[in-house]
Write a protein that binds this DNA or RNA. Structure first.
Length: 299
DNA sequence: CGGAGCTCCTGGGGGC
DNA sequence: TGCCCCCAGGAGCTCC
């Protein structure tokens, strides 16, 4: 599933392939893909036509294309669990789970585009599980899409402040993993990287946040950042074949995961067997020796 | 309003 | 072989 590093890989691919190009006809082939666009799929498609991509941006797992003319709207995307944004030749066969096709003026008229390699391609949103979607939304004075306004900065953001994060974390009355997954506290962390960060910091998911030390807070956010930086260097995680980057190439970071999905196999640090436990209707993986259950665990 | 639980969805895989 | 159930989980929503 795409988390921050994977989304960043997609952002870079989009920046390379769609910046400066103008949308022509847009076809929504599954209504659920634009469910967040309140005015409906028809409105989404008609308002996008003629707009030019000015830039590609990301916060946490949200991606958006800033549009010209004007600076008051953006094309917002979330990949959900299985979403892909593919730049494909217009002649390529439709993917089984194609949800939205976005044609460009250059792929219709064959006029010269900024990048001739992009000529004849279209942008496709493909999503098996349909948790992801696209919408055309308003932006605030900073150009931030309104639905993203409540999302915290992510650990790779220049303006992310570790000390402020740690302070906010210690004010919460919840369990550490719940806090890491709360996108209003820190964004971009999903179930996989949360487990990896907790393993690196040697902390249990149920550790009460209000009892954590500043050093532990700093350690866990540094661990999350380190995992993401390493994943990004490898082109993003993709053990789930559903996730493919913007040009269709899979990443292979899954082999680097230390605990996630490794139940019953030895901890890479101490050799104790990794355990899988139900948590928030999903799974948590941890080393029972490196990450012992706290005396006063929080759910 | 902070915190927690529910819900949306599809296809692969295991059990019988 | 076929059917049924479980599992994967991001984040908006609702409820307390």
């Amino acid at each position: 599933m795409p988390e921050l590093p994977e989304v960043e890989v997609v952002r870079r691919g989009l920046e390379r392939w769609v910046t400066g190009r103008t949308f022509d006809s847009v076809e929504v082939t599954h209504p659920r893909a634009t469910r967040r666009h309140v005015a409906g799929a028809m409105d989404f498609a008609s308002r996008l036509r003629g707009r030019t991509v000015a830039g590609v941006h990301r916060r946490g797992k949200y991606l958006w294309l800033s549009l010209e003319p004007g600076t008051d709207e953006a094309l917002l995307a979330h990949l959900g669990m299985s979403g892909q944004l593919l730049v494909q030749p217009a002649t390529a066969p439709d993917e089984v789970h194609l949800r939205v096709r976005l044609r460009f003026a250059d792929s219709v008229d064959s006029v010269d585009s900024v990048d001739s390699a992009a000529n004849g391609t279209e942008l496709r949103f493909v999503d098996q599980r349909t948790f992801g979607g696209l919408s055309l939304v308003g932006t605030d004075e900073q150009g931030l899409p309104l639905p993203v306004a409540h999302i915290a900065r992510d650990p790779l953001d220049d303006q992310f402040e570790d000390a402020a994060f740690t302070a906010a974390l210690r004010r919460r009355r919840t369990g550490l993993k719940r806090a890491l997954l709360d996108q209003s506290l820190v964004s971009g962390i999903g179930n996989i990287y949360a487990d990896e960060a907790l393993w690196r910091a040697r902390l249990h998911y149920a550790r009460p946040t209000d009892a954590m030390t500043r050093a532990q807070g700093a350690e866990v956010i540094a661990a999350a950042r380190a995992v993401m930086v390493e994943a990004l260097a490898r082109g993003g995680t993709s053990f789930d074949s559903l996730y493919v980057d913007v040009n269709g190439a899979s990443g292979y970071f899954e082999r680097e995961l230390a605990v996630y999905g490794r139940a019953g196999r030895p901890c890479l640090r101490c050799g104790a067997l990794v355990v899988r436990e139900p948590f928030m209707n999903r799974s948590s993986f941890r080393c029972p020796r490196c990450q012992p259950r706290p005396r006063r665990p929080h759910a």
